[in-house]
């Protein structure tokens, strides 16, 4: 199944989803398609004015361009997801996940779709990590 991971660039979530036999929907894959698209010349991300306008599907015109642009990249991933993992309290990360408002909206859009979703916290201790990995494994295996 296609699993949306949030943060959408997390190494830990990407790896766990693949490890337990599913396809992670990550922002890196979308960026990969964009940067390889030679027809667009808007480096570094090839996010264009049209993309930012397309972001209006997810957030109104009064919302800053950076949020709409990010949503134009991630929104389609949320739309095609069949399940999701949301990790709260993830460590500092910049760029695509650098805007807290966007991250809040992404969490909300995922929850609104009422997909099978698991919400976990970023592990701080061995005990946290043990529980987190066990829950994610059970969740992913339950999807099969």
């Amino acid at each position: 199944m296609k699993i949306f991971i949030d943060p959408p660039n997390s190494l830990i979530l990407f790896d766990l989803v693949e490890r337990f036999g599913h396809e992670p929907l990550s922002v890196m894959a979308t960026i990969q398609e964009r940067v390889d698209n030679l027809e667009i010349d808007m480096p570094p991300m090839n996010v264009t004015l049209t993309d930012v306008k397309n972001g209006l599907k997810y957030a109104g015109i009064e919302v800053p361009s950076g949020i709409r642009g990010r949503l134009a990249v991630w929104g389609p991933l949320i739309d095609q997801a069949e399940a999701a993992i949301i990790m709260e309290d993830a460590p500092y990360s910049f760029g695509c996940v650098g805007c807290h408002r966007t991250n809040l909206l992404v969490d909300f859009l995922v929850r609104k779709r009422k997909l099978p979703t698991i919400e976990i916290d970023y592990p701080r201790t061995e005990e946290d990590a043990r529980n987190m990995v066990i829950r994610v494994k059970e969740f992913l295996e339950g999807l099969k």
Partner: peptide
């Protein structure tokens, strides 16, 4: 800055 790469303005 914040938001330039996702607003399509970094290149500009």
């Amino acid at each position: 800055s914040c938001g330039t790469e996702y607003s399509g303005v970094q290149y500009e």
